[in-house]
Structure formats: structure tokens, C-alpha cells
Amino acid sequence: MINNLTKRTRNIFIIFILGLQCLIYFFNQKPLTDNYIQKSITVENFSSIVLSKSGITKIGSEKLNKIDENNIYLEGKSYLENKEYKIYGKNISIDLSKEISNSDEYVEVINRMGLLKAQGFKNLDYNGKIFFKGEIEFVIEK
């Protein structure tokens, strides 16, 4: 009788412990996932393809830093290339959701007209405008 009671108590205890473990496992899941998303990802010698309004744009850099779901930062020598232009610069920020890229560093752009040199740029890809800053020299090829 006493043995049976002890056995029953032990079983209940084991089930309780298992249930507790399940609860701990379940509640531990969310914070872990959150931490993973917030973590920035860094990739070296990176190149990829982005699909935007102007078509397929190839991007690359010495180092890629993923800031969040929509923002990436191309660190060091970087480039953006598509059928309209080739932009070669340094430290370029890209907002993928707004289709905006910009940099405050020296930049060289090759397009069908010629070679453009500027001290920075802001590319509003969604409306086909690129703003070049500072002293600009645009040599037009024949």
C-alpha cells in the first residue's frame, strides 16, 4: 500500500518535472529568436543581386554588414552595377525597402554618357534620380 503510494507520487513528480521542462523550453524559445534577429551579420568579399525598379542590380563590397531586414551597409570598396550605370565607391548604405543607396565618400560612375567623379551620392532608384554631391567632373565620351 505504502509502496504503491510512493510509486504513484514518484510518477506524478516525474510528470510534473517533465511538464516543467516543457514550459521552460517553450518560454525560452522567443527571447532566443529575438536575439538572433537583432544580431548584425557580417560577410567579407560579398557580392549579390538585388531586384529593384531599375532592374537587376549587382552589388558587392569588401565587407557587408546587415543592419536589419531592410538595411545593409557595404563597408570598404563597394560597387553597384546595372544596365544603366556602374557606381564604384566606398562605404555605401542601402535601404532595400525604399530603394535608396547613398555614400558620403568619393565615387566614380560610368554610364553611357561617360565617366563621372563626385564626392558622394544619393541614388533614389525608385524614381530614377541620382544626386551627386560636392565638386563634380563628368567627362563625356564621344
Binding site: A118, I130, E135, I136, E137, I140
Partner: peptide, 9 residues
Amino acid sequence: VKAGESLIW
């Protein structure tokens, strides 16, 4: 083309 401030394409 040379510009001292900005150029918009």
C-alpha cells in the same frame, strides 16, 4: 561638365 555644388542625373 563640371559643377561646384551638385549634379542630378
